[in-house]
Simulated scan of single mutants.
Amino acid sequence: MSEPVLTISDLHVDYGTGDDAVHALRAIDLTLHRGEVLGLAGESGSGKSTLAYAVTRLLSPPGVITGGDVHYHRRDGEKVDILSLSAPELRAFRWAELSIVFQGAMNSLNPVHTVRSQLTDVLKAHRPEMKRAERTDRAKELLALVGISADRLGAYPHQLSGGMRQRVMIAMALALEPEIVIMDEPTTALDVVMQRQILRQLVKLREQLGFSVVFITHDISLLIEFSDRIAIMYGGRIVEEAGAADIYRDARHPYSDGLLHSFPALHGPRRELAGIPGSPPHLAAMPAGCAFHPRCPRAFDPCASRVPMLTRPAGETAEPRTVACWLHHAAPTGVR
């Protein structure tokens, strides 16, 4: 395993304050390694986007980080505490070392500015020493990276297809060659053909430029294709983390297994889609014990009363993996 580039420790995020606060993230521990693609999967409302916005300090009120640490590790060994950066330091840090591709490209791009204007504005803000011609040349290079002709620099967002707009957003995120790119469901609104094209482009760029990726989606089948590791979120917690191949072959948490069986297999015999019964929990009224137990087909006594910790399964000796499930840990003392 390569050295870490981003470490998240015991991160807690609430919406609101006091007794009415909604606990959106609880005790998140996660490590992104240099050059790695880390997939983050889960149903809507599981906390995936909240985690992305907390790490990038883009949480909108009433969202507030109530505890934990987020550190960025530079190649020279310096460790940067992202949560303690001042406003000027944060402005210099974003896009230069960590960038984000938002979920809706049409909403992220300014409709009254051309592609050229929006790409060169990033360069003008962070590299004021660049001349206008140099910024335009760099914008052409960025479009070429994502497979768009330079003659589209003068186009407005509404003149581009959905896939092209999303690739412009990826180009903008790569403008300053950051070490980390967080992608928040960038292919959700696209058809499956365009999804695959963008993912292939992303894999190629990652190999070419060497950045690390956090890819957020509710579609675990996408992550299995190109992620190195996958973390599964449910109810504001990480419930399983392992290599993509390990998750696919042998998901340990019943929720992970349910996600895997919610999409059709491309090969092998036909099988009926099982899905997951019920609905995700309301974060303002979380069930006691394991948050998944009301929907879990394998729940037993400890699940309704104790929250399982995210630890290595009992007897596990293969690749590092963690799971938060009483099926793979000893039941708590006095509970059977």
Rank of each mutant, 00 (worst) to 15 (best):
S2A: 12
L6I: 08
I8F: 09
L11Q: 06
G16Y: 11
G16F: 14
T17Q: 15
D19L: 02
V22M: 13
H23P: 06
A24G: 12
H33R: 11
V37L: 06
L40C: 02
A41M: 08
E43N: 05
S44E: 05
G47A: 10
L51Q: 09
V55H: 07
T56G: 06
L59W: 10
P61R: 15
G67Q: 05
G67A: 07
D69Q: 13
H73R: 14
R75D: 07
D76C: 02
G77C: 14
K79L: 02
K79Y: 00
I82D: 01
L85E: 08
L90R: 03
R91H: 15
A92F: 03
R94I: 10
R94K: 13
W95T: 05
W95C: 04
E97W: 02
E97C: 02
S99P: 08
I100M: 15
F102M: 13
F102N: 12
G104E: 15
N107F: 10
N107Y: 10
S108W: 07
N110C: 08
N110W: 01
P111Q: 10
V112K: 07
V112A: 15
T114N: 08
R116K: 10
R116Y: 09
S117C: 05
T120S: 07
D121K: 13
H126C: 12
E129C: 06
A133Y: 09
E141W: 12
L143Q: 09
I148C: 01
S149A: 13
A150S: 14
D151Y: 01
D151I: 03
L153K: 12
A155I: 01
P157C: 09
P157K: 01
Q159V: 01
S161E: 08
S161V: 00
G162I: 03
G163N: 01
R167D: 14
M169F: 03
L176Q: 08
E177K: 15
P178H: 07
I182S: 06
L190K: 01
D191P: 04
D191A: 11
V192K: 12
M194N: 14
I198P: 00
Q201Y: 01
L202W: 04
K204D: 13
K204P: 00
K204E: 14
L205K: 12
R206P: 00
E207P: 00
G210Q: 06
S212K: 01
I216N: 12
I216F: 04
H218P: 09
D219Q: 15
D219T: 06
L222G: 03
L223H: 10
E225Q: 14
R229Y: 08
A231S: 13
G235M: 08
R237C: 05
A245Y: 15
D246S: 11
I247T: 11
Y248L: 13
R249E: 14
R249L: 09
H253K: 08
Y255P: 04
G258M: 03
L259H: 10
L260S: 09
S262G: 11
L266V: 11
H267E: 07
R270K: 15
E272L: 05
G275D: 13
G275A: 11
L283V: 11
A284C: 02
G289K: 04
A291S: 12
R295V: 07
A299E: 06
F300I: 13
S305G: 08
R306D: 06
M309R: 13
E316Y: 05
T322H: 12
A324Q: 04
L327A: 04
P332A: 08
V335W: 12
R336I: 02
